[in-house]
Each structure stands twice: as C-alpha cells, then as structure tokens.
Amino acid sequence: MSARLTRYGAFLGTALAIASLLALAGPAVTAEAASYCSGRVVRTVPFSGGEVVVHKKAGYVCAATVARRSGPRRAMSVGVQARGNREVLDRGRYRSHAGPVVVHAGNRCVRVSGSVGGRSVRSGWIMC
C-alpha cells in the first residue's frame, strides 16, 4: 500500500507542476494577443522589431506598436497622422508596447509609424 501511495503522490506532484507551468504560460500568450484599441483591426504593419496594429471605429483610428518580444524597457514609439493634420506620437521607454494613439480621421487617409529599439516602420497613406 505504501508503494501505491508513493506513486500516486508522485503522479499528483507531476500533474500539479505541469498545471502550474501551463497557468504561467497562459497569461503571457493572452497579454501578447491583447488589444490596446477598440474597434476592428483594419491593418497590421509588421517589421523586424514587432508590428503596428491599426484599429478603426466610428471615424477614429487607433494604433499601437507591439514589440515582438516583451523584455526590458527600451525605446518604442507609435504615431498616427490623418491627412492634413499633424502626427500624434507616443514615444518613450516601454517593455511590450507603445500607445495606443487615437486620432479622428473621418474618411481621410492615415499614415502610421512605429519603432522598437533601432528598428522602425512607416506606412504610406492607407485606408483611403
């Protein structure tokens, strides 16, 4: 009976360890997939450091730069410019994302930019 309890205890310990690892891995995946803007995704502009995700809702455009990997704080930025207006920027030292930045674009074209570390991207006029 003692050997049976030992095996059962080892099984429970292994199962608990695996469940703990899955629980720890779960929120990381959810955090990476989290949306920082409301509305529907209309464009994703990828680059080597991450991607700029662009949402639109009721004439407003929202963008956030999401790093490929979260980690130590580093220089990141996101910018959105509606045609005819100045670019609105969020620039700083972040771990996983910069933004969100929201502008009213109505039916005008917009241009987005983003950077993570020394890597950056700038779209042409989109959503025209």
Rank of each mutant, 00 (worst) to 15 (best):
K56T: 11
A82R: 03
C62R: 08
T65Y: 07
P72A: 14
S48W: 07
T30A: 13
A34N: 07
G71V: 08
A28E: 15
A25L: 11
R93V: 05
G39E: 10
K56R: 15
S35G: 11
E51F: 04
G49D: 09
D90G: 01
G71P: 09
R40C: 00
V52D: 03
R86K: 09
K57I: 00
L89E: 14
S20V: 07
V29R: 14
A67T: 02
G50S: 10
R74G: 04
E87H: 02
V53F: 08
A67S: 07
G39Y: 10
V61H: 04
D90L: 05
T65S: 07
E51L: 06
I18A: 07
S70H: 13
P72F: 14
A19G: 05
T44P: 00
R83E: 15
L22P: 00
A64K: 03
A31S: 10
T30V: 12
S20Q: 05
G39H: 10
V80L: 11
A31D: 13
G26I: 08
N85R: 08
C62S: 05
A63K: 01
A64P: 01
P27C: 08
T44I: 11
V66A: 04
A17N: 05
Y36S: 13
P46E: 14
L21G: 09
K57C: 00
V88A: 07
A58T: 08
L89A: 10
R91A: 09
P27H: 14
S77A: 06
A75I: 04
M76K: 04
A63Y: 02
R83M: 09
S48N: 13
G49L: 12
T30S: 11
R69C: 01
F47H: 07
A28N: 09
K56I: 06
R83T: 10
C62P: 02
E32Q: 09
A58C: 00
L21E: 05
A63F: 02
T30F: 10
G59D: 10
V45F: 10
V80H: 09
R73D: 12
K57L: 08
G92Y: 04
A15Q: 04
S20P: 00
G26L: 13
A28Q: 15
A64Y: 03
G39N: 12
V54G: 00
T65K: 02
F47V: 08
V42F: 06
G92W: 05
V78M: 08
